[in-house]
């Protein structure tokens, strides 16, 4: 599991890339690529994204 990108909201600003402590994100021209092996779901990028295009997967309880 890893952070999810809503491509229809993303404005390719690279803000998320800049704050990810685990270098898990890459902006390739017009697409954010998430390295699922590196993402720890820490949520930092979700808070930084000015377009609110990122979200964490909902935890399945129980």
């Amino acid at each position: 599991m890893a952070v999810r990108v809503d491509g229809s909201k993303c404005v390719y600003c690279a803000g998320c890339v800049s704050v990810c402590p685990f270098l898990a994100l890459t902006l390739n021209e017009v697409k954010i690529i998430v390295d699922e092996k590196k993402c720890t779901e820490c949520g930092t990028c979700v808070k930084a994204c000015p377009a609110k295009a990122l979200s964490l997967p909902k935890k399945i309880s129980g």
Partner: peptide
């Protein structure tokens, strides 16, 4: 050069 949330402005 890792930007922390406290020390950045997020802009639109």
């Amino acid at each position: 050069a890792l930007a922390t949330l406290y020390d950045v402005d997020t802009c639109y």
